[in-house]
């Protein structure tokens, strides 16, 4: 489904990713772990199409398309979803309005009929139930005044409504208490599907107690320095990242 080859990315003159290779197949869950500043979030943002990053070498194929040639909305319509580490607030716009506009944008691009307000409400209520979330979420302004945990759960709700083929979760576990973590993990597990792949970008192992990955990759200094199965995460929990760090000095992660 996703094939990343020799991906090099810079912000301005500063190289962040220095040759990433990664293959993700449908139905798989991959965890990308690594210390702060290793380039994890950059990878997630580049896959979603954030401007300000310059791809200096390499390519990304997604469902046999050149992913990097697509605008962010085209990627979303093709089934790529990024759950943001820091979800944005859109004052005055009800959650339900964003969800419906988003879903209908995606449906339109697939020549499917748009859902009217009633049909949409049926769909979204099913998703709320699946995630154990309250109806009141729908009528609050997007992320405005949400707690950190609510914002993350809202990202999962958006994912559930849009039903992506490739879901990338950027540190969705950070800042969550244990109950919220379980809710998020339950949501992701409920959406597991043979046709869907998930990439979990995470700093800590604890999310992986609830979502068991097929593959774990350790990113350091802009490269994948180690890949393994779920047991690698446990080993990292025990030994930290130090033993995997490359000789060269670690890069600090920059944002555009």
């Amino acid at each position: 489904m996703l094939h990343i080859e020799n991906l090099h990315v810079s912000i301005g003159d500063k190289p962040i990713l220095a040759g990433i290779d990664l293959d993700v197949k449908a139905g798989e869950v991959h965890a990308i772990m690594g210390p702060n500043g290793s380039g994890k979030s950059t990878l997630a943002q580049v896959l979603a199409g954030r401007e300000g990053y310059v791809v200096t070498a390499g390519c990304v194929r997604y469902l046999d398309r050149d992913l990097l040639a697509l605008a962010p909305e085209e990627r979303a319509r093709a089934g790529v979803f990024l759950a943001f580490q820091y979800p944005l607030e859109i004052p005055g716009v009800a959650n339900v309005q964003l969800l419906r506009t988003a879903l209908n944008s995606v449906r339109r691009s697939r020549n499917e009929t748009e859902l009217d307000a009633m049909d949409f409400l049926d769909t979204v209520k099913g998703k709320l139930e699946l995630l154990g979330m309250d109806d009141s979420f729908l009528y609050r302004a997007v992320n405005e005044g949400f707690s950190g945990g609510e914002k993350k759960r809202n990202e999962i709700l958006q994912m559930a409504v849009l039903e992506p083929r490739l879901a990338i979760l950027d540190e969705t576990d950070s800042g969550l208490d244990i109950d919220a973590l379980k809710t998020v993990a339950h949501g992701v597990n409920a959406l597991k599907h043979p046709g869907r792949a998930v990439i979990l970008v995470t700093h800590y192992q604890r999310l992986l107690n609830y979502i068991v990955p097929d593959r774990v990759h350790v990113l350091a200094g802009g490269r994948i320095v180690r890949s393994g199965d779920a047991s690698l995460a446990l080993e990292l929990e025990e030994r930290g990242y130090g033993w995997l760090m490359p000789e060269s000095s670690p890069q600090t992660e920059a944002r555009p």
Binding site: A48, G49, R50, E51, A71, P72, E73, R75, A76, R77, F81, L82, F84, P87, L88, I90, P91, G92, V93, Q97, L98, T101, A102, L103, S105, V106, S109, A141, V142, Q158, L162
Partner: peptide, 20 residues
Amino acid sequence: FYLRSRGLSEEDAVNLIVNG
């Protein structure tokens, strides 16, 4: 970017923000 990454065109994203 947040709204475009949900499938909205740039124009739709602007309109949604302005309407809000």
